[in-house]
Design a protein around this nucleic acid. Structure first.
Lengths: 268, 268
DNA sequence: GCAAATTTGTTCGTATGTATT
DNA sequence: CAATACATACGAACAAATTTG
């Protein structure tokens, strides 16, 4: 069960990284150097480094070298919320206050608004007929300047056409949050939501926005919000890079988390 | 911005897979065959296939060939629960009934019990001093015969030494669930829990148990359960392969999901 | 059970291209 | 522009796993 040479080299480098011999951010010796040190061809060294890249331990920059990855401090989003308010983690106003609690500085890109025929998956989750028109609101979100999430919300078009929720279609932020706005504008109250947590490989635009390698992964969270009649009133799809995000769900009576201090709040 | 050859080959194969020309389960032409078809060296073909493997589209079996991956029907775990009962998704009895609802057939491996000094991370989450002894209960879980999750629960040792919860230390299943058992045995009531959702690369034993490739990923969910005094009474760490698991969190008033039928229950 | 054929995995040498300093 | 460092590509050879005859 002798390992191939490239794996042996990779495991040796891995050991050095995990033991701290090669600290985060440190540049690895060049491939030419490693070639001599391990008495292997440069191709084999390159394979070893490819393997380390695929497990997320190092990052190579053409023309510069290979560097040990510095793990970013993960950002934690609370998905559950006080059912009374109907607000949830990662939404509008809540997003900003949560980020503030963790001593991070949030910012958002401009809102992009489109009118579309609902794709099959969106229509199914909103429980509207296939091809129904929906208002789509996109937004990019950053924390401490780092791209953090891509959010897309879908609202049935009838809120705009048959009601007074005109601001849904304007490409400006709704600072009080769309949950509150829809309640005031058309009397729709969000009484609950379901989050569906999945993960997959990123698509092209996600890779470039988040700066992910082709073998990175993203969480995709589908939040279906329900109104007082138990009907879906909104679908929000948020994409988070897996390497810098974690989630919390509180159920029942749970003591208050204390960010950065509480004993059970330490990241894994 | 012309792509390298191995990527062009990979993209062409990807197109064939995504268009259905190469359906799930179908064997790709052999590397020798593709080498001629694309007029490239076998090394380059091999690189293209490595890339497709890393994005999870194909799987190669040495000596046999390369096959288009058949996506498994994901299993969905509900993390939130009725706060009144204190039960949550994926726990003991609840796990079995949830799986039943999805027309899947669950099974579990034998329980393994150990007494350990709590590792730093466990001690922090249980809010006990470092090195405190804990009872550790491991279990492997399957659905339809496929390895589905690895669960490890940590209980403070004092439940056994100062109370009457002897069955915690026996390597047999506690069929009514440990939540109920602890309530009856030592009067500890679980009033809530916090789930901390993270993801990472699998370690060796996870890779072999789940049959994951080296660049696969797993969810790791840390569930800290709290008693009536707001103190942690249990930490359960569950590892799920990302490719066959999804999670749901319900908050507030949410209509009942109807597995396999409801419109908003369609997987992404 | 064994041998041959098929298929993927690993490794080397070598050459050339591209990005960065 | 030159030097350095990684990326891609080819050809060749042998190894390992599996199926087939």
């Amino acid at each position: 069960m002798t390992q191939p040479m490239y794996r042996q080299v990779a495991e040796d480098l891995r050991r050095q990284i995990e033991s701290g011999e090669l600290p985060a951010g440190r540049q690895l010796p060049s491939q030419l150097n490693l070639q001599q040190r391990y008495s292997a061809s440069r191709n084999t060294i390159s394979d070893a480094i490819k393997w380390l890249t695929s497990v997320g331990l190092v990052e190579t920059r053409p023309g510069q070298g290979t560097f040990v990855i510095a793990k970013v401090d993960p950002f934690v989003t609370i998905l559950s919320a006080d059912p009374g308010t109907g607000f949830g983690g990662g939404e509008g106003a809540t997003y900003l206050s949560q980020v503030g609690e963790q001593h991070r500085s949030p910012s958002t890109g401009p809102v992009r608004v489109e009118i579309q025929d609902a794709p099959a998956e969106v229509a199914a989750r909103l429980r509207v007929p296939n091809g129904t028109q929906v208002v789509v609101r996109h937004q990019e979100r950053y924390i401490d300047g780092t791209p953090w999430s891509l959010q897309t919300s879908f609202y049935p078009m009838k809120f705009v056409t048959s009601g007074d929720a005109d601001r849904l279609m304007m490409a400006t932020e709704i600072t009080e949050g769309t949950v509150l706005y829809l309640k005031k504008a058309v009397g729709l109250q969000q009484v609950g939501y379901r989050d569906w947590i999945t993960a997959r490989a990123p698509v092209q635009n996600e890779m470039s926005f988040f700066g992910l390698p082709h073998d990175g992964m993203v969480y995709v969270i589908f939040r279906t919000a329900f109104d007082q009649d138990g009907r879906p009133m909104r679908l929000t799809v948020t994409v988070f890079p897996i390497d810098r995000n974690q989630f919390i769900v509180n159920v029942g009576d749970v003591p208050e988390p204390q960010y950065g201090a509480g004993a059970d709040e330490a990241g894994p």
